[in-house]
Amino acid sequence: MTAPPADLPEGRPDQGAADQANSPAEAQPAQPRPILNASDLARITARIAHQILEKTRGAEHTVLLGIPTRGVPLAHRLADRIAAFEGVDVPVGILDVTLYRDDLRLRGTRALGPTDLPADGIDGKRVILTDDVLFSGRTVRAALDALNDLGRPSQVQLAVLVDRGHRQLPIRADYVGKNLPTSLAESVRVLLREVDGDDAVLLADREVR
């Protein structure tokens, strides 16, 4: 699951925890650097789909819930792959966590996304939350709170495309597309065809929001 060190930017440690001390300013290109391209993403989704099937023994009683914006197309892609590999139909839903965030006061209100659960609900199901980047863990915490108000899943797992480190809460992912050690000054941008017209993961110098 850990990415081969050859992919990493030079001079960075393999794991993200230690690199906060790194000075991000020196010798960084101004352009966002591509980390993964479209075929990398296709292979990663396929691998995670296989891992889900393996870890859940056939993905019965399982629901994929995407966290907007980019977790939603990811959840659909995983469901497509799972259906292609083993013919299991995994329901896909959307879980908007905006109203459960702890940073609304700091960042201001934002427009709400839809929340759309599968018709059978989530009670007693295995819910796999899906998001593009795992960073502080605060979005996942908000998602866990939201789930608590919506039903009682038998189990909750987490699948992310990129784990960039710097967790602020005791949260870990069950399925990781790529471990990407970053510095706090960098920003990870995930582009998906359904939302951005292109498939890629980029690493840029500064947090752009």
């Binding site: 908007d96 459960y100 609304l104 427009a111 709400l112 996304g113 839809p114 929340t115 709170d145 108000d149």
Partner: peptide
């Protein structure tokens, strides 16, 4: 329009078992 769109999402809370948001 933002208020009306937000209200559309808020309306889904009325159909839930726990009609409460921590916001």
């Amino acid at each position: 329009t933002l208020v009306l769109d937000t209200a559309t999402e808020m309306a889904t809370v009325a159909g839930r078992e726990v009609k409460k948001l921590p916001t």
